[in-house]
Design a protein around this nucleic acid. Structure first.
Lengths: 145, 145
DNA sequence: AATAGTTGTAACTAATAAAGTTACAACTAT
DNA sequence: ATAGTTGTAACTTTATTAGTTACAACTATT
Protein backbone atom coordinates (compact mmCIF):
# COMPACT_ATOMS: atom_id res chain seq x y z
CA UNK A 1 0.00 0.00 0.00
CA UNK A 2 0.84 3.56 0.03
CA UNK A 3 2.61 4.76 3.13
CA UNK A 4 0.09 6.40 5.40
CA UNK A 5 0.44 10.02 6.47
CA UNK A 6 -2.90 10.00 8.28
CA UNK A 7 -1.27 10.25 11.68
CA UNK A 8 0.96 13.16 10.66
CA UNK A 9 -1.93 14.91 8.94
CA UNK A 10 -4.22 14.47 11.95
CA UNK A 11 -1.61 16.06 14.24
CA UNK A 12 -1.28 18.84 11.68
CA UNK A 13 -5.02 19.52 11.76
CA UNK A 14 -5.13 19.72 15.54
CA UNK A 15 -2.09 22.00 15.74
CA UNK A 16 -3.56 24.16 13.00
CA UNK A 17 -6.87 24.54 14.81
CA UNK A 18 -5.01 25.70 17.91
CA UNK A 19 -2.51 28.02 16.26
CA UNK A 20 -4.95 29.59 13.80
CA UNK A 21 -7.94 29.73 16.13
CA UNK A 22 -8.60 33.37 15.17
CA UNK A 23 -9.24 32.79 11.47
CA UNK A 24 -12.06 31.01 9.68
CA UNK A 25 -11.04 27.36 9.76
CA UNK A 26 -12.50 25.83 6.62
CA UNK A 27 -11.38 22.40 5.48
CA UNK A 28 -10.06 24.18 2.38
CA UNK A 29 -7.71 26.39 4.38
CA UNK A 30 -6.48 23.50 6.52
CA UNK A 31 -6.00 21.40 3.39
CA UNK A 32 -3.82 24.05 1.79
CA UNK A 33 -1.52 24.02 4.82
CA UNK A 34 -1.20 20.25 4.68
CA UNK A 35 -0.99 20.11 0.92
CA UNK A 36 -3.97 17.87 0.38
CA UNK A 37 -7.64 18.12 -0.55
CA UNK A 38 -10.47 19.41 1.63
CA UNK A 39 -12.20 16.04 1.51
CA UNK A 40 -9.19 14.29 2.97
CA UNK A 41 -9.17 16.85 5.77
CA UNK A 42 -12.87 16.43 6.45
CA UNK A 43 -12.45 12.68 6.52
CA UNK A 44 -9.73 12.92 9.15
CA UNK A 45 -11.71 15.51 11.12
CA UNK A 46 -14.66 13.17 11.10
CA UNK A 47 -12.48 10.55 12.81
CA UNK A 48 -11.11 13.10 15.27
CA UNK A 49 -14.70 14.08 16.11
CA UNK A 50 -15.68 10.51 16.65
CA UNK A 51 -12.74 10.13 19.03
CA UNK A 52 -13.98 13.23 20.88
CA UNK A 53 -10.80 15.18 20.26
CA UNK A 54 -12.57 18.01 18.44
CA UNK A 55 -16.07 19.43 18.08
CA UNK A 56 -17.39 20.33 14.66
CA UNK A 57 -20.65 21.72 13.32
CA UNK A 58 -22.08 20.60 10.02
CA UNK A 59 -22.36 23.53 7.66
CA UNK A 60 -20.15 25.82 9.76
CA UNK A 61 -16.38 26.23 9.55
CA UNK A 62 -15.66 26.43 13.24
CA UNK A 63 -13.89 23.35 14.62
CA UNK A 64 -12.77 23.45 18.25
CA UNK A 65 -10.43 21.28 20.26
CA UNK A 66 -12.48 19.26 22.73
CA UNK A 67 -9.72 19.14 25.36
CA UNK A 68 -6.78 21.13 26.57
CA UNK A 69 -3.58 20.71 24.56
CA UNK A 70 -1.82 18.81 27.31
CA UNK A 71 -4.74 16.40 27.56
CA UNK A 72 -4.46 15.25 23.95
CA UNK A 73 -1.63 12.74 23.53
CA UNK A 74 -0.14 11.36 20.35
CA UNK A 75 -1.58 8.02 21.43
CA UNK A 76 -5.09 9.50 21.44
CA UNK A 77 -4.54 10.84 17.93
CA UNK A 78 -2.98 7.63 16.69
CA UNK A 79 -5.90 5.59 17.94
CA UNK A 80 -8.35 7.99 16.32
CA UNK A 81 -6.99 7.71 12.78
CA UNK A 82 -4.62 4.78 12.40
CA UNK A 83 -6.04 1.32 12.74
CA UNK A 84 -3.11 -0.55 11.26
CA UNK A 85 -0.15 -2.07 13.03
CA UNK A 86 3.35 -2.96 11.98
CA UNK A 87 3.02 -6.16 13.96
CA UNK A 88 0.67 -8.59 12.30
CA UNK A 89 0.58 -12.21 13.34
CA UNK A 90 0.29 -14.50 10.34
CA UNK A 91 -2.80 -16.60 11.04
CA UNK A 92 -2.35 -19.07 8.22
CA UNK A 93 0.36 -21.10 9.98
CA UNK A 94 0.06 -24.88 10.01
CA UNK A 95 -1.43 -26.02 13.35
CA UNK A 96 0.06 -29.51 12.95
CA UNK A 97 3.61 -28.21 13.23
CA UNK A 98 5.45 -27.39 16.45
CA UNK A 99 6.31 -23.95 15.12
CA UNK A 100 3.14 -23.22 13.16
CA UNK A 101 0.93 -24.49 15.95
CA UNK A 102 2.38 -22.30 18.67
CA UNK A 103 4.04 -19.27 17.15
CA UNK A 104 0.85 -17.25 16.75
CA UNK A 105 0.21 -17.11 20.48
CA UNK A 106 3.87 -16.48 21.24
CA UNK A 107 4.18 -13.59 18.81
CA UNK A 108 0.87 -12.11 19.88
CA UNK A 109 2.20 -11.79 23.40
CA UNK A 110 5.57 -10.37 22.36
CA UNK A 111 3.97 -7.91 19.96
CA UNK A 112 1.71 -6.70 22.75
CA UNK A 113 4.81 -5.95 24.81
CA UNK A 114 6.41 -3.99 22.00
CA UNK A 115 3.24 -2.06 21.30
CA UNK A 116 2.91 -1.34 24.99
CA UNK A 117 6.38 0.26 24.95
CA UNK A 118 5.47 2.27 21.88
CA UNK A 119 2.15 3.38 23.32
CA UNK A 120 3.70 4.44 26.59
CA UNK A 121 6.00 6.74 24.65
CA UNK A 122 3.17 8.01 22.44
CA UNK A 123 1.07 8.72 25.51
CA UNK A 124 3.86 10.81 27.02
CA UNK A 125 3.95 13.26 24.11
CA UNK A 126 1.08 15.74 23.95
CA UNK A 127 -0.23 18.23 21.46
CA UNK A 128 1.15 20.88 23.81
CA UNK A 129 4.67 19.60 23.08
CA UNK A 130 4.03 19.65 19.35
CA UNK A 131 2.55 23.16 19.31
CA UNK A 132 5.34 24.48 21.53
CA UNK A 133 8.00 23.01 19.25
CA UNK A 134 6.32 24.42 16.15
CA UNK A 135 6.15 27.90 17.67
CA UNK A 136 9.75 27.75 18.88
CA UNK A 137 10.97 26.68 15.44
CA UNK A 138 8.96 29.46 13.85
CA UNK A 139 10.38 32.00 16.29
CA UNK A 140 13.92 30.84 15.52
CA UNK A 141 13.17 31.34 11.87
CA UNK A 142 11.68 34.82 12.09
CA UNK A 143 13.32 36.33 15.14
CA UNK A 144 16.57 38.25 14.91
CA UNK A 145 17.76 38.45 18.48
CA UNK B 1 -1.56 -1.96 0.91
CA UNK B 2 -2.02 -5.34 2.35
CA UNK B 3 -1.02 -5.83 5.95
CA UNK B 4 2.46 -7.23 6.05
CA UNK B 5 3.27 -10.52 7.75
CA UNK B 6 6.89 -10.45 6.61
CA UNK B 7 8.18 -9.88 10.12
CA UNK B 8 6.14 -12.73 11.60
CA UNK B 9 7.07 -15.03 8.74
CA UNK B 10 10.77 -14.21 9.07
CA UNK B 11 10.69 -15.07 12.78
CA UNK B 12 8.88 -18.27 11.85
CA UNK B 13 11.59 -19.24 9.38
CA UNK B 14 14.38 -18.71 11.92
CA UNK B 15 12.58 -20.62 14.66
CA UNK B 16 11.82 -23.42 12.21
CA UNK B 17 15.46 -23.71 11.15
CA UNK B 18 16.45 -24.08 14.80
CA UNK B 19 13.71 -26.45 15.93
CA UNK B 20 13.79 -28.69 12.85
CA UNK B 21 17.56 -28.64 12.34
CA UNK B 22 17.64 -32.42 11.96
CA UNK B 23 15.40 -32.63 8.89
CA UNK B 24 15.97 -31.49 5.32
CA UNK B 25 15.01 -27.83 5.36
CA UNK B 26 13.68 -27.09 1.90
CA UNK B 27 11.82 -23.87 1.23
CA UNK B 28 8.84 -26.09 0.42
CA UNK B 29 8.79 -27.65 3.90
CA UNK B 30 9.21 -24.30 5.63
CA UNK B 31 6.48 -22.83 3.42
CA UNK B 32 4.03 -25.53 4.42
CA UNK B 33 4.58 -24.70 8.09
CA UNK B 34 3.96 -21.01 7.46
CA UNK B 35 1.12 -21.61 5.03
CA UNK B 36 2.66 -19.77 2.11
CA UNK B 37 4.58 -20.53 -1.06
CA UNK B 38 8.22 -21.63 -1.34
CA UNK B 39 9.06 -18.51 -3.33
CA UNK B 40 7.87 -16.24 -0.55
CA UNK B 41 10.05 -18.19 1.88
CA UNK B 42 13.07 -17.98 -0.38
CA UNK B 43 12.53 -14.27 -0.79
CA UNK B 44 12.52 -13.74 2.96
CA UNK B 45 15.51 -16.07 3.41
CA UNK B 46 17.37 -14.03 0.84
CA UNK B 47 16.86 -10.96 3.00
CA UNK B 48 17.85 -12.84 6.15
CA UNK B 49 21.04 -13.95 4.39
CA UNK B 50 21.83 -10.44 3.32
CA UNK B 51 21.43 -9.34 6.94
CA UNK B 52 23.85 -12.11 7.94
CA UNK B 53 21.34 -13.86 10.18
CA UNK B 54 21.52 -17.14 8.24
CA UNK B 55 23.81 -18.90 5.82
CA UNK B 56 22.38 -20.58 2.74
CA UNK B 57 23.81 -22.48 -0.20
CA UNK B 58 22.37 -22.16 -3.65
CA UNK B 59 21.12 -25.54 -4.85
CA UNK B 60 21.24 -27.14 -1.38
CA UNK B 61 18.52 -27.25 1.21
CA UNK B 62 20.64 -26.65 4.26
CA UNK B 63 20.15 -23.23 5.83
CA UNK B 64 21.96 -22.51 9.10
CA UNK B 65 21.57 -19.78 11.66
CA UNK B 66 24.58 -17.50 11.48
CA UNK B 67 24.51 -16.62 15.18
CA UNK B 68 23.47 -18.05 18.49
CA UNK B 69 19.77 -17.75 19.32
CA UNK B 70 20.35 -15.21 22.04
CA UNK B 71 22.37 -13.07 19.65
CA UNK B 72 19.52 -12.62 17.18
CA UNK B 73 17.04 -10.01 18.39
CA UNK B 74 13.64 -9.16 17.01
CA UNK B 75 15.13 -5.81 16.04
CA UNK B 76 17.72 -7.56 13.86
CA UNK B 77 14.94 -9.51 12.15
CA UNK B 78 12.71 -6.47 11.77
CA UNK B 79 15.48 -4.51 10.13
CA UNK B 80 16.23 -7.38 7.79
CA UNK B 81 12.76 -7.69 6.30
CA UNK B 82 10.57 -4.70 7.13
CA UNK B 83 11.50 -1.37 5.63
CA UNK B 84 8.24 0.39 6.35
CA UNK B 85 7.29 2.51 9.32
CA UNK B 86 4.02 3.49 10.89
CA UNK B 87 5.38 6.97 11.35
CA UNK B 88 5.65 8.82 8.08
CA UNK B 89 6.13 12.55 8.00
CA UNK B 90 3.99 14.16 5.31
CA UNK B 91 6.47 16.09 3.18
CA UNK B 92 3.93 17.99 1.11
CA UNK B 93 3.10 20.55 3.81
CA UNK B 94 3.00 24.23 2.88
CA UNK B 95 6.30 25.88 3.85
CA UNK B 96 4.67 29.32 3.95
CA UNK B 97 2.49 28.40 6.92
CA UNK B 98 3.56 28.40 10.57
CA UNK B 99 2.32 24.83 10.95
CA UNK B 100 3.22 23.47 7.52
CA UNK B 101 6.64 25.10 7.59
CA UNK B 102 7.76 23.63 10.89
CA UNK B 103 5.78 20.47 11.64
CA UNK B 104 7.91 18.18 9.51
CA UNK B 105 11.02 18.74 11.60
CA UNK B 106 9.04 18.58 14.83
CA UNK B 107 7.36 15.28 13.98
CA UNK B 108 10.56 13.79 12.65
CA UNK B 109 12.16 14.29 16.05
CA UNK B 110 9.18 12.96 18.01
CA UNK B 111 8.83 9.95 15.73
CA UNK B 112 12.49 9.14 16.26
CA UNK B 113 11.85 9.09 20.02
CA UNK B 114 8.91 6.73 19.64
CA UNK B 115 10.80 4.43 17.29
CA UNK B 116 13.71 4.44 19.71
CA UNK B 117 11.39 3.18 22.47
CA UNK B 118 10.02 0.53 20.17
CA UNK B 119 13.46 -0.56 19.01
CA UNK B 120 14.79 -0.80 22.54
CA UNK B 121 12.00 -3.24 23.33
CA UNK B 122 12.52 -5.17 20.09
CA UNK B 123 16.24 -5.43 20.82
CA UNK B 124 15.50 -6.93 24.24
CA UNK B 125 13.58 -9.90 22.83
CA UNK B 126 15.69 -12.60 21.20
CA UNK B 127 15.03 -15.64 19.09
CA UNK B 128 15.95 -17.64 22.19
CA UNK B 129 12.87 -16.24 23.94
CA UNK B 130 10.67 -17.08 20.97
CA UNK B 131 11.96 -20.64 20.60
CA UNK B 132 11.69 -21.24 24.35
CA UNK B 133 8.10 -20.03 24.39
CA UNK B 134 7.18 -22.16 21.39
CA UNK B 135 8.64 -25.28 22.99
CA UNK B 136 6.97 -24.56 26.33
CA UNK B 137 3.60 -24.10 24.65
CA UNK B 138 4.09 -27.30 22.70
CA UNK B 139 5.03 -29.17 25.89
CA UNK B 140 1.90 -27.88 27.63
CA UNK B 141 -0.11 -29.14 24.73
CA UNK B 142 1.34 -32.65 24.55
CA UNK B 143 2.46 -33.38 28.07
CA UNK B 144 0.15 -34.97 30.60
CA UNK B 145 1.85 -34.31 33.88
C1' DA C 1 -37.10 33.21 2.41
C1' DA C 2 -33.49 32.91 -0.79
C1' DT C 3 -28.66 32.51 -1.47
C1' DA C 4 -23.89 31.36 -0.82
C1' DG C 5 -20.81 28.75 1.57
C1' DT C 6 -19.66 24.68 4.31
C1' DT C 7 -19.71 20.03 6.31
C1' DG C 8 -20.19 15.07 6.10
C1' DT C 9 -20.25 11.21 3.35
C1' DA C 10 -20.60 8.10 -0.54
C1' DA C 11 -18.74 6.34 -4.72
C1' DC C 12 -15.19 6.20 -7.72
C1' DT C 13 -10.10 6.36 -9.59
C1' DA C 14 -5.11 6.19 -9.13
C1' DA C 15 -1.05 4.84 -6.89
C1' DT C 16 1.51 1.79 -4.09
C1' DA C 17 2.97 -2.36 -1.72
C1' DA C 18 2.50 -7.28 -0.09
C1' DA C 19 1.57 -11.82 -1.29
C1' DG C 20 1.13 -15.30 -4.48
C1' DT C 21 2.35 -17.48 -9.08
C1' DT C 22 5.06 -18.95 -13.00
C1' DA C 23 9.29 -19.65 -14.99
C1' DC C 24 14.00 -20.61 -15.30
C1' DA C 25 19.10 -20.26 -14.93
C1' DA C 26 22.56 -21.79 -11.79
C1' DC C 27 23.95 -24.84 -8.54
C1' DT C 28 24.43 -29.39 -5.62
C1' DA C 29 24.32 -34.14 -4.64
C1' DT C 30 23.83 -38.69 -5.92
C1' DA D 1 23.77 -37.43 -16.36
C1' DT D 2 19.83 -36.75 -13.51
C1' DA D 3 16.83 -35.02 -10.02
C1' DG D 4 16.11 -31.68 -6.81
C1' DT D 5 16.96 -27.07 -4.98
C1' DT D 6 18.03 -22.15 -4.59
C1' DG D 7 17.83 -17.40 -6.08
C1' DT D 8 15.62 -14.21 -8.80
C1' DA D 9 12.83 -11.96 -12.28
C1' DA D 10 8.38 -10.92 -14.12
C1' DC D 11 3.76 -10.97 -13.65
C1' DT D 12 -1.07 -11.16 -11.26
C1' DT D 13 -4.02 -10.49 -7.39
C1' DT D 14 -5.48 -8.15 -3.43
C1' DA D 15 -5.67 -4.51 -0.02
C1' DT D 16 -5.06 0.16 1.49
C1' DT D 17 -4.22 5.17 1.15
C1' DA D 18 -4.88 9.32 -1.16
C1' DG D 19 -7.20 12.03 -4.28
C1' DT D 20 -11.53 13.28 -6.95
C1' DT D 21 -16.33 14.13 -7.96
C1' DA D 22 -20.76 14.72 -6.41
C1' DC D 23 -24.36 15.95 -3.47
C1' DA D 24 -27.62 16.15 0.49
C1' DA D 25 -27.93 18.56 4.77
C1' DC D 26 -26.90 22.32 7.38
C1' DT D 27 -25.61 27.41 8.72
C1' DA D 28 -25.21 32.22 8.24
C1' DT D 29 -26.23 36.34 5.93
C1' DT D 30 -28.65 39.43 3.37
Amino acid sequence: MKESTKFSDAIHILAFIKIYSSIKLTSQIIASSIGTSPVVVRRLMSQLSEAKLIYTTKGTANPKLAKKLESISLLDIMRAVEERSLFNVDNKTNPDCIVGGNIQEVLKKKYAEVEEAMQTKLASITLQDIVDDILIKQAERTGDC
